[in-house]
Amino acid sequence: MLTFIIRRTLWTVVVMFVITVVVFFIFFKTPGVDPARALAGRNPSPQTLAEVRAQLGLNRPLLVQYGLMMKRIFITRNLVSYSDQGQLVIPEIFAAAPATLSLVFGAAIIWIVMAIVMGVAAARLRGRIYDPILMILALIGLSAPVFWIGQVANLITQGGLHNSVFSWVPPLGYTSFTVSPLHWFTGLVFPWITLSILYIGFYARVLRANLLEIQTEDYVRTARAKGLSERRVLLRHTLRTSMITFVSLFGLDFGALVGGGAILTEVVFGIHGVGFLTWQALQNLDLPTIMAVVIYGAFFIVLMNALVDIAYAWLDPRVRPA
């Protein structure tokens, strides 16, 4: 087990390193991108440009440039935004993180509860009309673009009905929990639902298939033969077993969402999280911000992947040599 953890950790570090190299080259070494030009102000004279270039170390060897950049991102954390030289990129990302975490955590709770309810219901009701209906609903959830669901939600809650049924929904945007817990909650209800729909559909399908699969396994049959009630079998045996897949999937999806995957939901609801930050940076071609978000996002995902793998190996020793 220990060797597995060590190997997995080492590999995680290697992937992270390769990611930083790839990102560095995408953003700073493609022809046509001149970071000095962007940082030198509006109408720079050639000598100003040259000086800024020297300050940034752009005239140094490639390796040194890479080193300097990584130092700015991870150690001194003083990477400066292109669009605003007073703005440090890394603190900005950390300031945006609570909004993203609020959004993803809330949505995760909704999708786990709903997916379990739907998946279990569909599995229990197999052979009846409810099963296909539930599964078609799940498929529809899987098929709708999340930003479009968000627009529809906005149309309903911010449009004509805003002055009657949905008057409790605040205007688009994110209110920090520390400012007003109530606004934080009411403002996030529809973003949570919107973001969770895709995952409800997906997890419900996976769970149902998993449950049906496990039901044919020997130990479940044994449990049934012992005369345990169907409900007990489901809760004590099948559901518990299928949770392993469920939890590992969840780890990956959660990582992806926190690592920038929630960008569409954040943009459509105007939630100023990490994804929204990226979107703003995109509008201004603020490369340092995009780069930092991509690196931090990828790191988070790699980390979650590693944790899931280790947890999985711990729970199920068969996968260890993989």
């Binding site: 109408n43 720079p44 004279s45 100003t48 000086e51 800024v52």
Partner: peptide
């Protein structure tokens, strides 16, 4: 560093830099 061109006509400005 900013749009320095407005005041570049001042004596000695050419010697100035960041």
């Amino acid at each position: 560093p900013g749009p320095t061109s407005f005041y570049s006509g001042i004596v000695g400005a050419s010697k100035c830099s960041v």
